[in-house]
């Protein structure tokens, strides 16, 4: 394959997405799950920027959307780390299976 096109980038993004989902499913540590979420968001961003580069209609739009996603990811990480720390304060662990009080 001597020509790098949209497909190659999208496949990389797909692998990132899969890895992120796998991390979210298998990790029990709340921060591990957060890392999985970051991977998924990154895969979405790779998609957006690749569309921006290779599709005429998405020029600029893709990058703007990617910027918004980055902002959202930063905000989400800040809040989620805050929640993790509170979880740790209340339960003395960040195992998400332990935080099942609401299940009744």
């Amino acid at each position: 394959m001597m020509s790098i096109g949209l497909t190659e980038y999208l496949v990389v993004a797909a692998v990132l997405f899969g890895a992120g989902i796998f991390t979210m499913i298998t990790k029990r540590n709340a921060i591990g799950i957060l890392i999985g979420v970051e991977l998924v968001l990154n895969s979405a961003n790779v998609n957006l920027v690749a569309f921006d580069r290779y599709l005429e209609r998405c020029r600029i739009d893709g990058q703007i959307l990617a910027l918004v996603v980055i902002v959202l990811a930063a905000a989400e990480a800040a809040i989620a780390v805050g929640i993790c720390i509170n979880l740790y304060k209340n339960l003395a662990t960040v195992d998400v299976d332990t935080a099942a009080k609401l299940r009744g």
Partner: peptide, 8 residues
């Protein structure tokens, strides 16, 4: 994230 790991 690393900060969170350290604290928890």
């Amino acid at each position: 994230l690393i900060f969170g790991v350290m604290l928890t």
